[in-house]
Design a binder for these strands. Structure first.
Lengths: 239, 239
DNA sequence: TGCCCTCTTTGCGCCGCGACAAATCCACGA
DNA sequence: TCGTGGATTTGTCGCGGCGCAAAGAGGGCA
């Protein structure tokens, strides 16, 4: 993965889509590219937001820590996705942690540079609210799911969603292309690692998934989709 | 409540904060003011987004309906807050319903007018992403709460939050200034109306709240705050 | 004023899931 | 190659909160 950024990379980033060649060059010139070793904590929740980041390669985990030590995983980012940006635009402290889950490469811009770019290319501001809007809709959906669905359904849905954005075809099925623990899956859906482990084991017996340490392969996505849509069991009607 | 909009009303709306007098006049000229009778459904989830709305007076409930009929209340809006706007900017279908919970007054702008305004006053686009960012942070927080806290804590937190944005001082304490049912409270925190009712009854016995049909008065906000921060009970240690 | 409809309260039983515990298992580094 | 520590699995137990049911209580409208 080259460390010399160019227009073709930047043009794929949603925040800069729709900009002309000159504008893109402008954006590239102000950005810094760097490698992020696995497990590196890029952003710390609560710190002042001074940089905007875009993933070029790899995976970044965005998570929140509760006052009493609990964790909630908000999302996993792949190439072309940005983070830390809204906090910069809003001038608020970073609302979450960012950690590289595999060796990754990113571009980042200092807050001042980004402010400059927005001033010169107002399209960026509009794209930014579009981006935020998209994430809002996602979060609304997750909030609804977490309050109305059971753990099994939420897990099925989450796996399907991850397949869409990080699925890699293999001989046995579709594999999630970065390491993830039961604990982290639990933190994504609001469940304990125990329940996640049990659920995966049950699915494994039915040949729906195959999993090992930090690795998950979905053999039958349709079965997962069926589970996700499954209505709540009709509360046993035995007299 | 007058139906003739003027600058002073508009200037209070976050989306237009920071605009100069001329720009505000421009904004006012393009907007339409109207009354919303209680229980009127202003926006329907799934419809195309063709208008941006701002509450002038009253309360609007934003809620989502699940495919199987479940409801989730996302937020209650008061004067100065906007809705329907992001869907317009993003060109997506409306992600939620909007219903007036009391007789209200609003200003709305057709999508084309808003696009025009943004073109002429780019500050609006920036304000819009700031707005979206703020709501993102809120939603992240709620997602965290719903996955890590118990019903009692979530209810306490939610009541406190509503006092902040819709609290009215009375002789007995602070009252929520619009009617709300146990059902709706349940839909805000992801619980059934039964559990909400039981919890409120228990609090009432301790003199923390006072409630009747669609009406809630908090007598002791500090007690609620204490409950909200209460650590999870240490799982009984009796042999 | 009286009926009706919605909202609220309360009891009871069940169960999904979290808390706790303990035994592997595997990957990685010394 | 052999530890060593994190990750996973599996069992048991208890409880918070939901489903169900049914009675009571206001408020609004005719």
């Amino acid at each position: 993965m080259p460390l010399t950024p160019d227009r073709s990379l930047i043009a794929k980033i949603d925040l800069f889509s729709g900009l002309d060649a000159d504008a893109l060059d402008d954006v590239v010139r102000r950005g810094h590219t760097r490698r992020l070793p696995k497990d590196m904590q890029v952003l710390v929740q609560g710190d002042p937001a001074t940089t905007c980041h875009a993933v070029i390669d790899g995976r970044i985990k965005i998570s929140q820590t509760t006052p009493d030590g609990g964790q909630v995983v908000l999302r996993y980012l792949g190439p072309g996705e940005m983070y830390g940006t809204l906090a910069v635009l809003m001038g608020i402290p970073l609302p979450a942690d960012a950690i590289a889950v595999v060796d990754s490469v990113e571009i980042y811009w200092p807050a001042a540079a980004m402010a400059d770019l927005i001033e010169r290319h107002p399209k960026i501001a509009l794209a930014s609210s579009r981006l935020a809007g998209g994430r809002l809709v996602d979060l609304q959906t997750r909030l609804r799911e977490v309050t109305t669905e059971r753990v099994e359904q939420r897990l099925a849905r989450t796996l399907l969603r991850m397949l869409g954005q990080a699925g890699r075809r293999t001989a046995e099925g579709v594999e999630i292309d970065f390491p993830i623990t039961r604990q982290e899956l639990g933190e994504m859906i609001g469940a304990t690692l125990h329940t996640v482990s049990r659920t995966l084991s049950a699915w494994e017996e039915h040949g729906i998934v195959e999993s090992s340490r930090r690795r998950i392969v979905v053999r039958d996505p349709d079965a997962l989709a069926a589970i996700a849509e499954e209505p709540r069991p009709p509360a046993a009607a035995a007299p």
